[in-house]
């Protein structure tokens, strides 16, 4: 999987590039908006990591350039800007995620992987956490290689949790993703599906756990769940 890294600080770029290479990504590095646009014209990238403070133009111009081509390549903004309106501005201009400097490399890699796991993106077909694997094409779930049978609703819930693995999936995200706008939403049905899925995962000895955040949503994590 090839990523484009747009960052004018060469030292930082080299370090990020090394780390991404280590995580199995191929990285093209450019330092200016012009170079970034040129690279985007000639190559296909699975994702773009974009610094906003670039020597020639504002990095948001590169984002505009990508989105104007109706290109949905995930873009992760990497910036030192954290003014009260900056994050909103970045996300409103079509960025998929916003990572503030200084960051930890692992965090950056996890966030990129999360973006690539989205439907239609490079890592979106096979989702994996711990010993649990979800093939989104065949809709088959395996725990340490053993297939398990899940209902359609349980599969939908698990897919969403895996796409946002280690992150919170709020109730409204479930509602948006799992129910058409014409469906009558029964919040109970999510709880029922979670309950059943939890039991299925537990029975199959999965090492991933569904944590409940009361009033918020759920997190699928490899941290064991404790009863609270």
């Amino acid at each position: 999987m090839k990523l484009l890294l747009v960052e004018d600080n060469l030292e930082l770029a080299d370090l990020v590039k090394d780390a991404l290479n280590g995580a199995g990504f191929i990285v093209d590095h450019v330092s200016t908006c012009d170079e970034a646009k040129a690279s985007l014209m000639t190559s296909n990238y699975s994702g773009v990591i974009l610094d906003l403070r670039l020597p020639d133009e504002d990095g948001l111009n590169v984002l505009g350039f990508i989105r104007n081509r109706s290109d949905s390549t995930p873009v992760l903004i990497l910036t030192a800007r954290d003014g009260l309106a900056d994050r909103v501005k970045g996300l409103n201009s079509g960025a998929d995620d916003y990572v503030l400097k200084p960051f930890e490399i692992e965090e950056l890699i996890a966030r990129i992987k999360a973006l690539l796991r989205r439907p239609g993106h490079a890592m979106g077909t096979v989702l994996k956490l711990g010993n649990t694997t979800f093939d989104t094409i065949s809709r088959q779930v395996t725990i340490t290689g053993n297939p398990i049978a899940l209902s359609r609703r349980e599969l939908d819930v698990l897919e969403l949790l895996l796409r946002r693995a280690q992150n919170v999936v709020t109730k409204s995200m479930f509602e948006d993703e799992l129910y058409g706008s014409n469906d009558i939403t029964i919040s109970n049905s999510i709880e029922v599906a979670i309950h059943r899925l939890r039991k299925s995962l537990n029975d199959a000895k999965a090492d991933v756990y569904i944590h409940t955040l009361r009033g918020v949503g759920y997190i699928l994590s490899d941290t064991p769940s404790s009863d609270m």
Partner: peptide
């Protein structure tokens, strides 16, 4: 809660 939820879970705590 969504932003800090993952950190809380890692610490064996939760947010409601």
């Amino acid at each position: 809660a969504s932003e800090l939820g993952p950190i809380a879970i890692k610490q064996d705590k939760s947010i409601s």
